[in-house]
Simulated assay, not measured.
Amino acid sequence: MIVREQKYLVINCDDFGQSAPMNAAIMHLLEERRVSSATIMAPAPGFEEAAAWCRKRGQANIGLHLTLTSEFEAIRWKSLTGDPSLHDDGGHMYRTLLEFERGANTAAVVKELDAQYERVRRAGIAITHADNHMGSLYGIAMGRSHIPQALMKCVKWKVPFRLFRRVHPEDILASVPGVERAVGKASALAGTLGVAIPDYLLSHPFEIEDGETYESFKQSMIAKLYRLPEGISETYIHPAIPDDAMLAAIPHWEKRVWEYRLMLDDDVHAAMKDAGVTLTDYAFIARHGRASRLRSAWALGTELLRRS
């Protein structure tokens, strides 16, 4: 079997540990094996519940959701290290990517990444991968990226990281100016360091779009399965069970409920099978997601020497 001639998909549940309703949904999906994995938020208020469940079950497919922002008024959290540069005037992690990139001291970011890893490790969880809450480390807002620091941590922790080698032309990221070059540089750095990554990242809007219903959302996700490129792709969801208090307090909570419902929908899993897509996990990426370090170093050098 040649991996690049097959279609593999990782479905990761982000924000494990954010809140009890999200924990309940993610636990259920993991128990039913309807998703590949979840990534846990060490600073978030639901962390202890999520970690205790993982420890009791010996859950093996849990990653670290590196968290440097706290976006919702109803659920705020502080950093584990308490560094002032990681907090807004209210003493919580920044709400937006722009605030984080403007205010965070790089040395403090690195210490916080270590602290979050150590909290998860002390909780008895051996992480299988790492990714990043809200993309705060990617330099999306003003180009101040902490991807090199995150990749160096993944080398130390010996885990893959959520990056991607190519931009799927139908993905919403394809419209971001300069995304191809940014992806090329970051993936070349990952390859040079020996960090395994997926080939593609498939994303979808976090919010409910105008006129969108559960059925239209479902059909759009099924259509993506049939257009999935060959190789290893990852998509991520933020599933949650219905909860009146969270629906009132968290923007687009209903979309999170839709994502939970989607993963329990037999039509989706039948479509995955019909489209020839194999559900896999980050253990598979760890085995098959590394690029040639020599070719990656050459590609990285070429990118760094480009003037424009």
Rank of each mutant, 00 (worst) to 15 (best):
A190H: 03
K185G: 08
I222A: 00
A223G: 06
M221H: 10
F217T: 03
I222Y: 02
K218N: 09
Q219S: 13
A186R: 05
K218D: 05
P198W: 01
V183R: 01
D210R: 14
G191Y: 01
D210H: 13
S220I: 06
I208N: 07
P205V: 08
Y214M: 09
A190E: 02
T213L: 07
S187D: 11
S216T: 15
E207H: 15
F217Q: 04
D199T: 06
L225F: 01
L189R: 06
L193E: 04
I222L: 01
M221D: 00
I197C: 01
G184H: 02
K218S: 13
P205A: 14
K185P: 06
F206K: 11
G184T: 02
P205W: 08
F217E: 06
L193V: 12
M221F: 06
P198I: 01
K218E: 13
Y214D: 07
A186P: 00
E215Y: 08
L202F: 06
E212C: 10
T192K: 14
G191R: 01
K224G: 10
L225G: 00
I222Q: 01
I197E: 01
A196W: 06
V195Q: 07
A186L: 03
S203C: 13
L189W: 02
L201K: 00
E215P: 07
V183Y: 02
T213H: 13
S216C: 12
L189K: 05
Y200C: 00
S220N: 11
V183D: 03
K218C: 13
A190M: 10
G194E: 09
T192M: 15
G191T: 09
Y214C: 11
S220C: 08
S203H: 08
E207S: 14
T192Y: 09
Y200G: 02
S187C: 11
A188V: 10
D199W: 03
S216I: 12
A196N: 06
E209R: 15
G184R: 04
S187P: 00
P198V: 06
V183F: 03
D210Y: 13
S187Y: 05
G211A: 12
S187H: 05
Y200N: 01
A223D: 13
E212Y: 03
L225H: 00
M221R: 14
Q219Y: 03
V183L: 01
H204R: 15
G211K: 12
H204L: 07
I208E: 08
L225S: 02
L225M: 10
P205C: 08
M221G: 00
I197N: 02
V183C: 04
K224E: 07
I222D: 02
G191L: 02
G191N: 04
G194I: 00
K224S: 11
T213N: 09
G211C: 08
P205L: 05
F206C: 10
L201Q: 00
K185E: 14
L189C: 11
E215C: 04
M221V: 08
E209Y: 09
F217D: 03
A186S: 12
T192L: 12
H204N: 09
L225N: 00
Y200E: 03
G194A: 09
Q219A: 14
V195A: 13
T192I: 03
D199M: 05
H204S: 14
A186Q: 07
A190S: 10
A188I: 03
H204M: 13
I222S: 03
F217A: 04
E212A: 09
V183A: 01
